[in-house]
Structures are given as structure tokens and as C-alpha cells.
Amino acid sequence: MGKLKVIKAGPHSSIQDLGRFGYRRFGIPQSGAMDPALMKLSNQLVSNPNHYPTIEIALGGIAFESHSDTSLGVTGATLTKNGEIQTNGNAHVKAGDVIEVSKPEKRYAYISIGGLLDAKHDFGSYSTYVQAGFGGMAGRMLQKGDLLETDKTHTLLQQVVVPEQLLQKTKLIHILKGPEWYLLKELPETKTFTIDAASNRMGVRLSGEKLKIDAQEIASSAVIPGTIQLPPDGHPIVLMNDCQTTGGYPRIGKVVDEDLPKLAQLAPLSEVVFNLNFSE
């Protein structure tokens, strides 16, 4: 059985799978990997099914000490074992090996351990949602000393090519009009913002020129990952995977599903260009 001890946890490391679906009616958010395509590739590196829970790290590295034979796959960061360095790679490890995973090259990176990770399973998902203590390692972020265990030792290492578009930093994000788009006083087709440092798994805050709107609040109504809310301060927030299920701020737009991981991967203070999608 695979056993890894966390010896350095990093700032925002959590167990995530592809998310929790079908429970928004109870106010339960989606959660799950912020960059699902990259997360699936880390599973493929160790022959895991795509939906198996992985370790998501953000804005900082993580380190493990192995307590057994096991296999590891890393996407979006560098894996170092006994001085051997690999980017987007995989490795077999033995008991006693120390494995370091670098800070993500973009914002989020994924680590898969061969086999099914022993994690809390709530509402159909292993994804960690800290606010309610769902999923993951006892419903919280990973900490130094945590023991991660899987049901297998070595799994077959697979060669995986990370597609170029997952490695590139894209600052162009396509959006659709939201239900309250018409409340905006100006209707820009293109707008440039900066990613605020206060962004997280719940939302990406955008700073820049304020947007003006006619109404400040609406009667609470459904919101989803990708919804662009405009609070009274005029600075939009793009809701992300851990966002709440209803909200009272005008929903001026929606980041297209395809571009949401690209937005998630932009580092704090980077520039982002929103472009209204008129296609179809």
C-alpha cells in the first residue's frame, strides 16, 4: 500500500477530484480541481482513472517522505527525487525517499499517487471543501505530518504528453452575457483587468477601472462557477469552484467553461483581457 508522509505542506494543498455535482439545491458547492485537464493528466501518469482524487497545490510547493513503495505523477510543477528533477513527470519511490514538488509553474499543480487515495467521501466526491469540512483529509487543507495512503504500491508509469495549451499562460478569457448584463451603464466588448492577490478557490477578484451599474443588489438567485458578479465597489469577482450556490450581486457575465481553468491558472497581479463572445 502506498504511504507518503507530508513533511512540508505548502500554503494551499488539498485533496481534489473532479468535483461534487447535483447538490447545489442543498447549498452544497461543486469544489474539485481548478484545472481538471491538468489534474486528469497527473492521474494518467500513474495509470489511475481520471476521476481519482489527487493533491492540488497552489502558489507553493509540497514535500513528502515515503513510508512504502509507491508511484507518483506530477503535472504543473517539478518533481525532485534523490536529486533527479522532472517536470510533468512520474517516478517510482521507495520507503525512505524524500520527494519534493516545486511551486506550481502557473498557479495550480497536481500530484497523483498510484492507487485510490484514502480520503473522506462526502456527497459523491473526495474533494476538500474546508468551509463545511467535506472530503479530503478530514475536510481540511493538508498539514505537515499527514499520512497519505493508497490501496496500491507500484502502479505502471505512463508516458503522458502535456498539451501545449495547458502549459501556455493565456490572458484572453471569453465571456458570455449574464442575466444582469443589461444593468451595466457601459457595455464593453473588451476589458482589461488585473488578478487581485485576494483570489482563491471561491473567487477570482479583478481589479482595474470600476464598472458602473444601475442596481447594487438583486434578490438572491443562483450562481455557478464562472459567474461574474459585480459588487457595489465596482470590481468584478469571477466565482470559482468553491463558490456559494446563490448570491445577491448582479451577474453581469459568465466566463465560458473552457476558459475557466485558464483564468484559475493566472498568477496574482497578472493581466487578464475579457472578451465578450458573440459566437453562434
Binding site: 455535482f21 447535483g22 447538490y23 447545489r24 439545491r25 434578490a219 438572491s220 438567485s221 443562483a222 455557478i224 450556490t245 446563490t246
Partner: peptide
Amino acid sequence: LNDIVPAYHSIAIF
């Protein structure tokens, strides 16, 4: 239907 979220004056259909 994958999910449904009613609110004050709206219903979101997933």
C-alpha cells in the same frame, strides 16, 4: 435534470 436551484423569483435548471 442534473440539479435545480430555486430562489426568491427564479429557478436555475442544471
